[in-house]
Design a protein around this nucleic acid. Structure first.
Length: 312
DNA sequence: CGTTGAACCTGTTTGC
DNA sequence: TGCAAACAGGTTCAAC
């Protein structure tokens, strides 16, 4: 479910309710998705939510703990929703959904509940001093990066563009839905090698990512099966998908049938007419005669244009 | 570096 | 109809 627009929507919902609230108590169900459950139980009660941040798909609640001493270091509750995680702010009596494993009771009587059937999500507490290290491992924030920042990350990379967009150490927050939607909009085939995109294509992709994410946030994210925001409402952006989950249906631009292939281990939807496939890479040279092989060798390692500058 | 496949876990959809 | 396989928005790790 949750990619940047969904996590942003949840974070905004939490922002409307949590800052200033004190956490009174914590109850845990299954804890195999929590790094250190005991730490959660000891740190959270009595703390006050100061701020709700989002870094890519990661939510970070800054907590002010009861001043034990002069050290005014904040603590962060980190929440990653994985595939099926939900965070809901509930009235006390509300029925408890199955697979709800974390309850945070607030000082106004309401509860923050974490529900996650597959438990691919993650939760943990971190000291403030650990945060910079965590954030530097993440890539660029898509809605904050400049076009040249974006392009610089593609330079010299021989990976397929889809794999690179999904890599959270390159850009943070894009997942399977929004990479496919962005590539469709930019008319780029998911298997194209990143370094070999033209300047025009890079620009189109940069702009597509912004447009898609902004529109998705405006509509509260995409709800395919599980996703709901912090109040339990689904998003609406799935109604505007052009590629994702549309196998066999007509391309909204040209009418060709949307195809599904596996790229980077993930289902990838694209329009075979609008997003033209890269030239097939050479098969193994094993069967070639010796002279042919040496001739090949000379031209084999073509250096992608973008890497030339970087290397020099 | 980059790719692939498996693993984590449960629920739903698809196919024979 | 029934059961098993395939599949799902994410991340991580080992092996090549």
């Amino acid at each position: 479910m949750p990619e940047l627009p969904e996590v942003e929507t949840v974070a905004r919902g939490l922002r409307a309710h949590l800052p200033g609230r004190r956490i009174v108590s914590v109850q845990l169900g299954k804890t195999d998705f929590i790094d250190d459950p005991a730490a959660l139980e000891s740190v959270l009660p009595g703390s006050r939510v100061a701020e709700v941040r989002r870094h890519g798909k990661l939510m970070a609640l800054r907590l002010e703990t009861e001043a034990d001493d002069a050290a005014d270091e904040s603590v962060f509750l980190l929440i990653h929703l994985g595939m099926t995680g939900r965070v809901l702010v509930c009235a006390p009596g509300q029925p408890v959904a199955p697979h709800t494993h974390v309850f945070l009771t607030l000082d106004d009587g309401r509860e923050v509940r974490y529900t996650d059937p597959r438990r691919f999500g993650r939760m943990r507490v971190e000291r403030e001093s650990a945060m910079p290290g965590i954030l530097t491992k993440l890539g660029l924030e898509p809605l904050e990066m400049t076009e040249s920042d974006f392009a610089a990350r593609l330079a010299g990379r021989r990976a397929m563009i889809k794999a690179l967009l999904l890599n959270q150490a390159v850009y943070r927050g894009l997942g399977n839905i929004y990479t496919d939607e962005s590539l469709w909009r930019a008319r780029i085939h998911p298997m194209r090698l990143a370094a070999w995109l033209s300047a025009t294509e890079r620009r189109a992709l940069y702009r597509a990512i912004r447009k898609i994410l902004e529109a998705a946030i405006r509509l509260g994210g995409s709800s395919i099966s599980d996703y709901v925001d912090s109040e339990g409402n689904p998003g609406m952006f799935q109604l505007r998908h052009h590629a994702y989950d549309r196998e066999g249906k007509g391309c909204h631009r040209c009418g060709a049938k949307i195809r599904r292939i596996i790229v980077a281990g993930r289902s990838s939807y694209f329009c075979p007419r609008c997003q033209t496939a890269p030239r097939r890479r050479k098969k193994s040279a094993a069967k070639m005669s010796q002279p042919a092989q040496s001739r090949r060798r000379a031209v084999r390692r073509r250096v992608p244009p973008a890497a030339v500058n970087t290397a020099a």
